[in-house]
């Protein structure tokens, strides 16, 4: 007997594309940025769109949100062509978070988040008690309720981004698209924001798609990845399948980086001068010794001439010469060259 633990809604393709081509029309000329895309976005999942600068991530997001028309093919939203929806209908189905600076500094956080209720409010945008409740809930979810009465201008970059996401939440759309939501944030805010988005997808059954340059956080928290390879082909799938299938390696083809599957992030292409053999039982110590060696241009190989044995960070033996730190180890290695 097959027991499914996932709710049915989680496998509902809310947004999908058929033979989608995105790009720009310039008179009669069509400049196709990305062609022949077959994509699906489901409720209850966080999808990260990864790709190098200028490959067309923003163009794709704009097309999926209905701001820009596709060159060809269709975007289907709930089984209906995106082009058939009115602006007002779309505003209740898709919300967007950009990284643009706004002139909203003199609005309070509450007023900013309240703008998300626009598709539902009347002529003058007044909120009823239900709207007020949605706004309050959105601020609590994003953890900025304590800033409700503060000017947006007084917020830190991380808080501001949370407020903008809360605004999107107040819009109560099943789909949220975010264009590099963590671009200007410090590591702590980046992780917090990503965790929060992941929680939203799971707990509120939202379909969340974000473009990002933060590979390690995306690998950690995305249910699925959309990889835009350097040959402008799109690969989508569950994160781990793509990592183990070697798909990440194709992301920056021809650039001086390589994907380290163990670390789950891109590292500079090693500039190998010499190989060394390393004998170290402690995994943490081994990791950081390899890190230091790689930076200095050494690659670890089992049958190398130079042999390093490390028992702790202060007891390291390089070819029978004992050194008492990693720094001393590097120093000694350079004298051998």
């Amino acid at each position: 007997m097959l027991i499914s633990t996932k709710p049915m809604a989680a496998v509902n393709d809310i947004l999908s594309t058929q033979n989608l081509a995105v790009g720009y029309r310039n008179g009669k000329q069509e400049n196709c940025v990305l062609c022949d895309l077959q994509l699906t976005l489901r409720q209850g999942e966080l999808v990260c769109l990864l790709g190098s600068n200028g490959i067309g991530k923003s163009t794709l997001l704009r097309t999926l949100s209905g701001v820009q028309r596709p060159l060809s093919g269709t975007v289907m939203l709930n089984g209906r062509d995106l082009a058939d929806y009115t602006k007002r209908q779309l505003s209740q189905l898709i919300s967007i978070v950009y990284t643009d600076r706004t002139l909203a500094g003199a609005l309070t956080v509450r007023e900013l988040v309240s703008l998300g209720r626009h598709p539902y409010t009347g002529f003058f945008g007044r909120l009823d008690s239900e709207d007020e409740q949605v706004v309050a809930d959105a601020m609590i979810t994003m953890g900025i309720a304590h800033k409700a009465g503060c000017h947006v201008a007084t917020l830190s970059d991380g808080e501001r981004q949370k407020a903008m996401i809360a605004r999107a939440l107040a819009q109560e759309t099943p789909i949220i698209l975010l264009d590099e939501p963590t671009a200007f944030l410090d590591v702590a805010s980046r992780i917090e924001t990503m965790k929060c988005l992941h929680r939203l997808a799971v707990e509120k059954n939202k379909a969340i798609l974000l473009s990002s340059h933060d590979v390690s956080q995306s690998l950690a928290l995305a249910n699925r990845l959309w990889l835009l390879r350097s040959d402008r082909k799109m690969v989508q799938g569950v994160t781990e399948d793509l990592v183990l299938g070697g798909q990440l390696d194709r992301l920056f083809d021809g650039r001086q980086v390589q994907f380290d599957s163990m670390v789950g992030d891109f590292v500079a292409l090693a500039d190998v001068r010499q190989s060394v053999a390393l004998d170290c039982a402690d995994e943490l110590l081994r990791h950081w010794i390899v890190n230091a060696l790689a930076r200095e241009g050494y690659v670890v190989a089992t049958d190398a001439a130079i042999k390093i044995t490390a028992t702790s960070s202060t007891v390291i033996v390089v070819d029978n010469k004992a050194v008492n730190s990693i720094s001393a180890m590097i120093g000694y290695l350079s004298t051998m060259a």
Binding site: V67, K87, R88, Q92, L107, L112, L115, P119, G125, Q171
Partner: peptide, 23 residues
């Protein structure tokens, strides 16, 4: 005075306002 609602949306910039359903 009739335009206060779209005016407030425009504070976020045209792109956000459009996403909020403003023509």
């Amino acid at each position: 005075m009739m335009l206060v609602k779209p005016l407030n949306a425009l504070l976020l910039g045209a792109r956000y306002a459009e996403n909020l359903g403003v023509n």
